[in-house]
Design a protein around this nucleic acid. Structure first.
Lengths: 217, 217
DNA sequence: GGGAAACGGTGCAATATTGAACAGAAAACG
DNA sequence: CGTTTTCTGTTCAATATTGCACCGTTTCCC
């Protein structure tokens, strides 16, 4: 019953398989990893630090698609039809990133059926996550979206650890994630604080239980 | 150089491989294919007709995630960790739908590396498409989003055939796709008509070249 | 240390969007 | 064929959102 086996995509196992076909490298804060428009020829893995994926529209408006943390993969787009990067990846703090050549992954997919299956499960979870983001946009007001973004940043929903504080994300970035303006984010953040959903004097602390209640009622 | 081979996911080839593990069936207009909350244990393929994927939020608001047409797959979610359907699939006209059991796909993935690779490419393209939808929400006004939705419905961007008219989609459905209200859709549709971007008396005709120009300027 | 840059709080007028209502036209159905 | 449902055009007041501006504070970098 192979279908009953655990389907969690284990980055450790994966990286072991990749072995010599990957290269690890440090990035400074704000350093570019890849840029929108470049050819996509490799995938990446966050060994330490954080990475921001942004898109710049024709009209100069910016949006943040995702923020990755330790253990996340990004840049999977290279495995589809040959294409260009849709987004720009930037380190948002000193980070260690593993680069895996497209050709290496393809060959593992070819040689290891179990890996292929896990990788597919991984992609499905990415589709699911992206669809949730889309639905959030379609269904909720910017206030709710901000609340959800804060919860996710606090690590809510990720395994067992409702992350302490972790990410330092500016209100500007929050605005680009939520799809609104910075002044609006500032307004809501203060409201959340008054309502006791979050604390912040310098660093942010999310009261996830209360905030989660707020989000769903 | 296997990576240079065409990566287009060919449904025909795929279905041939599936062979006896799939069942084809007709659906009446508005008939349910699967419902939000059910266990996800199969994937589907549109042999003829159209299928609408909808989500109902806790607060009774509805959103349309996608409309599938001949040759499209949907319900891939079953290949991830065992989970429930996030959305409801409904036929939006008399349709013929092929159902492929999860176990069948998994076994093909296991036995046929080339198929696994193609399937991964297919998933990547779905991620890409979903991210584009998300970006559209983050960056554009509802008027632009409606314009884009109309273009996509008209088959713009799909291979070589800027589809003639095809889908009959009500303004209500358009609103749920775009993420706005029906009255707003009605307003914009009339504006588009006055601007010569579309025609419609009974059936809709999209002047894709002009509409596309409008969308990008 | 000190200047520059980024960040956060706030106000505000111009727009965009919602949500609900009503009526006529078209389409589906028995 | 009539009736019931769905679809469309339209209105309108209440809200939500934008885009900008200004200013004090913090952070970063030389």
């Amino acid at each position: 019953m192979p279908s009953q086996r655990a389907l969690t995509f284990n980055p450790g196992t994966f990286l072991k398989k990749i072995g010599k076909c990957s290269t690890s490298r440090g990035y400074r804060n704000k350093e570019l990893i890849f840029a929108q428009g470049e050819a996509a020829d490799a995938m990446f893995y966050v060994e330490a630090g954080n990475v921001k994926l942004t898109v710049l529209s024709k009209h100069g408006k910016k949006a943040v698609i995702a923020i990755f943390r330790q253990g996340d993969f990004f840049g999977e787009g290279c495995l589809g039809a040959p294409s260009l990067r849709m987004s720009t990846a930037t380190a948002v703090r000193p980070s260690t990133i593993v680069r895996v050549e497209k050709i290496a992954i393809i060959s593992i997919i070819h040689d290891d059926p179990l890996f292929a299956r896990l990788f597919i499960a991984h992609l499905i979870s990415r589709v699911t996550r992206t669809e949730e983001d889309l639905l959030d946009q379609l269904l909720n007001s910017s206030e709710k979206r901000l609340a959800r973004t804060l919860l996710l940043l606090a690590g809510f929903g990720t395994q067992s650890k409702p992350h302490p504080a972790a990410l330092k994300v500016s209100q500007g970035t929050l605005a680009e994630m939520v799809g609104t303006t910075r002044s609006r984010v500032s307004f809501f953040m203060n409201r959340f604080r008054k309502m006791g959903l979050i604390d912040y004097n310098g660093s942010l602390h999310v009261h996830w239980a209360v905030l989660n209640f707020f989000l769903h009622k």
